[in-house]
Design a protein around this nucleic acid. Structure first.
Length: 288
DNA sequence: AAAGTCACCAACCGCCAAGGA
DNA sequence: GTCCTTGGCGGTTGGTGACTT
């Protein structure tokens, strides 16, 4: 909706926009053309797809539209409480790797989850005194107080979808237990692999792994309240830790050769194995 | 009823890695 | 080894509409 008037870019601008390409919201006609073309010729070749489909859009825009809205498997509508729970758990484990998170939530797209996180979940965590980046308790400062205060004011005055029926159960003074798991599981499984996380890295993402990786390693330890803390402490880097389960998920070539930790190279190469691994973490049934 | 405020979310942007020439 | 193309990712933007004043 950046350009709701659906402008047509006349010249290639400094931002790399190309001549004659339409921008802004998609019309139903465009959706139909795109869907027809992909149904006929399949996904891929995004660069040439607009021409084949008769669309005045860039390939990137077509891909985004298809991936986020037109694919038959895309589920629209309200995020269910159990999905929200899953997002929180996955974010705690993976950080801002939205595509990975989306890959574990059927029918949801990375964009949708990212939006939901930014507009709902991060604010909810902040309002509950939890840092949405680290999942650790916020250290109260004047700025965080201001944020919390403004969030409260916003809730009082405006739409309150973020504190609907499903919300308060998610992150409260007790760890999430919607699947009936042991709330101290993370402590049991990873508890002693706590120290020395600062310089660790985890699962550099396909293209960008730096900030996101640090987010993830920061999120390795999570707390749900000052009184009752549940530390994930999943140590996701190369190397081993004799104390706890020290899991190597680093994908970069220099980081794959851990000696004593769980070798996750195969997990990353084999989505099925990685999926099982993640599901184990999510379902809290790993290492039992 | 009108004006102002704010949250939501579709869409865009820049960046990066993989793969092929 | 270098360059180019392609696909994919996370971060950010800004119009829309709900809501308040």
């Amino acid at each position: 909706m950046r350009n709701p008037s659906s402008s047509v870019t006349e010249k290639k601008s400094s931002g790399g926009r190309k001549m004659g390409l339409k921008r802004g919201p998609w019309t139903s006609e465009e959706d139909e053309l795109l869907t027809k073309c992909i149904n006929k010729e399949g996904e891929g070749k995004w660069r040439t797809l607009p021409e084949r489909a008769g669309l005045a859009r860039c390939g990137k825009s077509c891909r985004l539209r298809w991936m986020n809205y037109l694919r038959p498997c895309v589920k629209r509508g309200q995020i269910a409480p159990d999905e929200e729970d899953l997002i929180l758990r996955l974010h705690r484990l993976l950080g801002n790797r939205w595509s990975l998170i989306a890959g574990r939530i059927p029918g949801r797209t990375d964009n949708e989850i990212k939006n939901y996180w930014n507009s709902h979940l991060s604010k909810k965590l902040i309002s509950q005194g939890i840092d949405p980046k680290t999942h650790k308790p916020l250290v109260e400062t004047s700025s965080t107080r201001a944020i919390t205060k403004s969030l409260g004011a916003a809730k009082n005055g405006r739409r309150s979808e973020s504190d609907n029926s499903g919300s308060s159960k998610m992150v409260t003074t007790t760890p999430p237990t919607s699947s009936g798991q042991n709330p101290n599981m993370y402590q049991h499984h990873f508890g002693s692999a706590v120290d020395g996380l600062e310089d660790d890295q985890m699962m550099t993402r396909g293209g960008h792994g730096n900030a996101a990786a640090s987010d993830a390693q920061e999120s390795a330890g999570c707390y749900y309240s000052a009184g009752q803390c549940c530390e994930t402490n999943l140590h996701l880097e190369d190397g081993a830790d004799a104390g706890g389960y020290h899991v190597n998920l680093q994908q970069s070539s220099q980081g794959l050769g851990n000696e004593d930790g769980i070798d996750c190279k195969g997990m990353l190469e084999d989505d099925g194995v990685f999926s099982s691994f993640l599901n184990s973490l999510i379902n809290d049934d790993m290492f039992v």
